[in-house]
Amino acid sequence: MQLIIMRHGEAGWHTLDQERELTEAGREGVGAVAHRIAESPWRPSLIWSSPYVRARQTAGIMSEILNCRIDEKDFITPDDDPGACLDALLEVRESRLLIVSHMPFVGSLSTLLVDGHRRGIPFMTAQAVCLDMPVVGPGCADLKAQFLP
C-alpha cells in the first residue's frame, strides 16, 4: 500500500474547533501540494477525510485536483487513537490512499506506521508524507517522500 498522510491547510481561529475554515493562504497551500502530488507517482485513488470543516475543505481541493473520491471517517479527528485507523487500514482494498487529518493525529499515525510508537512528529499545515507499506502494521512503513506547501 502507498499511503499519503496529510495535515489540513491553514485554518482561521474565529469559531469552534470543528467548524474552523481554511484561510485563503490555506487553500493556496493545499492546491500547491495537490499539484505536486498529481505530478508524482504517489497519486491516490481514494481520500479519507476527518469530518471537521478544515479537513473536508482540504480533501475537497485534493479531490478536485487529483480526481478521486472522498470517504469521511469519524476516527481520524485530532485526538483519535491512531490504532483505530491502523485497524481500518487492514481492511482497505485501495493500493493508494490519502488521509487528511489534524495534529496530533497525523504525527502519531505516521510514527506508529514508520517507527512502531505513537510519540508523534510535527506536521506543518498542508504538509504530506508518503509512506510505502508492503504490509500494514506498526513499524512496517518506509517514509519515501514529502510534499510541503
Rank of each mutant, 00 (worst) to 15 (best):
L46G: 05
I47N: 13
R93T: 10
R69I: 00
R43N: 08
H35N: 05
P104M: 06
R93W: 03
D79V: 01
K73Y: 03
E39Y: 00
M62L: 13
D71V: 12
A38G: 04
A34Q: 02
I61C: 04
H35R: 15
M62Y: 05
D71G: 00
D87N: 13
I65M: 11
I37A: 01
S101L: 07
E72H: 01
D81V: 09
R69F: 00
M103E: 14
P44F: 12
V100K: 02
F75C: 11
D81T: 10
V33L: 03
D71Q: 12
E64M: 04
E39C: 05
Q57K: 14
S63H: 07
H102G: 10
S49R: 12
E72W: 03
S45K: 15
I61E: 05
D80L: 05
D80I: 06
D80M: 06
S63P: 03
L86H: 09
V100W: 02
L98H: 05
N67Y: 00
E39T: 03
E72Q: 07
W42M: 02
M103H: 01
K73W: 09
V92T: 13
C68W: 04
E94M: 03
S95K: 13
L66D: 06
V100H: 01
N67D: 10
G60A: 14
Y52K: 14
V92M: 14
L66G: 06
V53T: 15
E94S: 13
